[in-house]
Amino acid sequence: MQMQPMQVQLPDEHTHVAFGETLGRLLQGRGRLYLHGDLGAGKTTLTRGILRAYGHRGAVKSPTYTLIEPYALAGKRVYHLDLYRLGDPEELEFIGGRDVFADDALCVVEWPSRGAGWLPPADINLTLEVAEPGRRARLASATPRGAALLAALFENAPGSGR
């Protein structure tokens, strides 16, 4: 079951992080969220908000060189992946990717196109783009769980649209 893509305007960093926090709470610490967008579009900023939903208050850096940054927060496992420098999708196998994508963890993946053919399907694909002022987030479900999550997210969200 796939829903029509939805979008939300994020006019400033505060709103951007708050939206990530809302999304993080909705995901309940499990699933796969794939973040698309150009460099500087705000993927790591959104991830900071997601991590705040589980109590993280420190800095969040994109794991460009380490590929995976694990977080153990509020009894949940959250993995932040940045595949920008991935040479071959098969590298994910060698760095423990199968364990990372366990059903009981949340995987937030930047640059998922670099892992094409190896990565499991996303529950939600989220594309960020610069839309002055701020950013625009376009969300699309890719699994039945993703469709249910987006329906719940946008049920009463102001400023969102299909």
Results as ranks from 00 to 15, higher is better:
Arg136Phe: 03
Gly87Ser: 15
Ala137Gly: 08
Val60Ala: 03
Val130Met: 11
Ala41Asp: 09
Leu39Cys: 11
Gly40Ile: 09
Gly146Asp: 04
Tyr79Asn: 03
Gly115Thr: 02
Asp88Gln: 15
Arg138Cys: 12
Gly40Glu: 09
Val130Ile: 15
Asp82Arg: 01
Thr44Glu: 03
Ala53Glu: 01
Tyr65Asn: 10
Arg135Lys: 12
Arg77Val: 00
Leu83Gly: 01
Glu90Thr: 08
Thr127Cys: 10
Leu51Thr: 03
Glu91Ile: 06
Ala116Leu: 13
Glu91Trp: 04
Gly87Gln: 13
Trp111Arg: 01
Asp104Met: 05
Ala116Glu: 15
Gly117Cys: 10
Gly134Leu: 01
Asp38Ile: 03
Thr44Trp: 05
Arg138Ala: 11
Tyr54Ala: 02
Val130Phe: 09
Leu92Met: 14
Arg52Leu: 07
Leu128Ser: 04
Asp38Ala: 14
Asp103His: 15
Arg114Phe: 06
Pro112Trp: 09
Gly40Leu: 08
His56Tyr: 10
Ser113Val: 15
Glu129Ile: 08
Ala74Trp: 00
Glu129Asp: 15
Gly40Tyr: 12
Arg52Cys: 09
Phe101Arg: 02
Leu83Ile: 10
Pro63Glu: 10
Tyr79Val: 01
Gly49Lys: 02
Ile68Tyr: 01
Leu150Thr: 05
Trp111Phe: 11
Arg145Pro: 04
Pro112Phe: 08
Arg114His: 12
Leu139His: 03
Val109Gly: 02
Val130Tyr: 12
Pro89Gln: 14
Val130Leu: 14
Arg57Phe: 09
Leu39Lys: 12
Glu132Val: 14
Gly55Tyr: 05
Leu92Ala: 05
Gly42Leu: 01
Ala137Cys: 05
Asp88Asn: 14
Gly96Met: 07
Gly37Gln: 05
Pro120Gln: 12
Gly87Pro: 03
Leu126Asn: 07
Ala116Tyr: 08
Gly97Ile: 04
Thr143Asp: 03
Ile50Gly: 00
Leu46Val: 02
Arg138Gly: 07
Ser141Asn: 10
Thr44His: 02
Arg57Ile: 12
Arg145Glu: 13
Asp103Met: 12
Ala74Phe: 05
Asp88Ile: 11
Tyr71Glu: 00
Gly87Cys: 10
Arg52His: 11
Trp111Ile: 00
Asp82Pro: 01
Pro121Trp: 09
Leu150Phe: 09
Val78Gly: 00
Leu106His: 00
Glu90Ala: 15
Pro70Leu: 02
Ala142Asp: 15
Arg85Thr: 09
Glu93Asp: 15
Thr66Ser: 14
Arg85Leu: 11
Pro89Asp: 12
His36Arg: 13
Asn125Arg: 15
Ala105Pro: 04
Ile68Ala: 00
Pro63Leu: 07
Val100Trp: 05
Arg114Lys: 13
Leu150Val: 07
Ala142Gly: 11
Gly117Tyr: 15
Thr64Glu: 07
Asp99Val: 08
Leu119Tyr: 00
Pro70Arg: 06
Arg77Phe: 03
Arg136Glu: 01
Ala131Arg: 08
Tyr71Val: 01
Arg138Tyr: 11
Thr64His: 09
Ala74Ser: 14
Val130Lys: 11
Thr127Gly: 11
Glu93His: 15
Leu81Tyr: 02
Gly87Val: 07
Asp82Ala: 03
Leu67Phe: 13
Leu150Ser: 03
Thr47Glu: 07
Pro70Lys: 04
Glu91Tyr: 04
Leu119Gly: 05
Leu86Pro: 02
Ala72Arg: 15
Gly42Ile: 02
Asp123Arg: 07
